[in-house]
Design a binder for these strands. Structure first.
Length: 277
DNA sequence: GCCCAGGGATGCG
DNA sequence: CGCATCCATGGG
């Protein structure tokens, strides 16, 4: 994809592989707002505005290098879409969500966000994460940064409950108290099995949440998170009645290999956006 | 009032 | 192991 990097912005010169609404609305990120022709995104303590024009888009930010990586701009989605389009179930999903990209997000932010996401709906997830940011994150003037581990250490179970986490409040408190900065920095040098094992040892993190963290924070595109939507979609297209999500995840990972994460996003966005059950 | 939401923990056989 | 049940909370 052709893009230009300037001091204060990135210019995406081709909209066939970059659609900001699709990127933000496919369920991988929660702290963003879409207004009239302008989107705002917060990742950790960093901020960007995205303006879409007729033939190009602009990512306006003080953190050009960060968001170049964040939006996965160096990756060739044309090639990915070509390969996945040979699948008849996926083809219409890719045509619909042609501009989806998988973001490179922060590890700690993903751990917290996807613990909140369990058995929850996206509107409430967004609400809770924004409340936590406003109460515990750094005030950056125009916005609140996502809280750091150190900042969230001072949060009580009641604080998490007040943010609307429900029964996840205790899980979150436990996990936050257990995590150390050392855990998080050492995590990157672990191999995949060790990373998975570590994530699954955290309260509130099961198979699906671990898959989301590995996909969205570690770029592990071999993982295929299976939520209620993917569960329904799978049974619909294969005419089955499987309820074991681990089994479904294994089957789909087998099928799509290291393109699993991309396939998952195309499926999720298409069915959810069109409200197909 | 019921069912569902980007599921996970626990207990029981 | 597999399986059932429970878990806060807001919206449809």
């Amino acid at each position: 994809m052709k893009y230009t990097k300037l001091d204060d912005r990135l210019i995406i010169e081709d909209l066939s592989e970059f659609n900001i609404k699709q990127i933000l609305d496919c369920g991988q990120i929660f702290r963003y707002w879409i207004d009239n022709d302008e989107a705002r995104v917060i990742s950790t303590n960093k901020f960007a505005r995205i303006k879409t024009h007729d033939t190009y888009a602009e990512i306006i930010t003080k953190e050009v290098d960060y968001f170049e990586h964040f939006f996965d701009l160096k990756n060739d989605y044309g090639k990915i879409k070509d390969k996945l389009s040979s699948d008849k179930f996926l083809r219409p999903c890719i045509e619909f969500g042609y501009g989806i990209r998988i973001l490179h997000q922060d590890l700690f932010e993903m751990i917290v966000s996807f613990i909140v996401s369990a058995n929850n709906n996206i509107k409430r997830i967004k609400n809770s994460l924004n409340k936590l940011s406003e109460q515990f994150g750094t005030n950056m003037g125009d916005y609140f940064a996502f809280p750091t581990l150190t900042q969230l250490k001072s949060a009580t179970i009641q604080d998490f409950a007040d943010a609307g986490l429900g029964y996840r409040a205790e899980q979150m408190h436990s996990t936050i108290q257990r995590l150390t900065d050392q855990d998080l920095s050492a995590f990157y040098s672990l191999d995949l099995d060790e990373q998975t094992k570590f994530l699954l040892s955290l309260k509130g993190v099961g198979k699906k949440v671990a898959d989301c963290i590995l996909l969205f924070a570690m770029g592990h595109t071999n993982s295929f998170p299976v939520d209620t939507w993917i569960n329904k979609i799978y049974n619909k297209i294969y005419n089955t009645t499987i309820t074991d999500r681990k089994q479904i995840s294994e089957n789909l990972t087998q099928k799509y290999g290291n393109l699993s994460g991309y396939a998952q996003q195309y499926f999720f966005y298409y069915y959810r956006e069109n409200n197909i059950n």
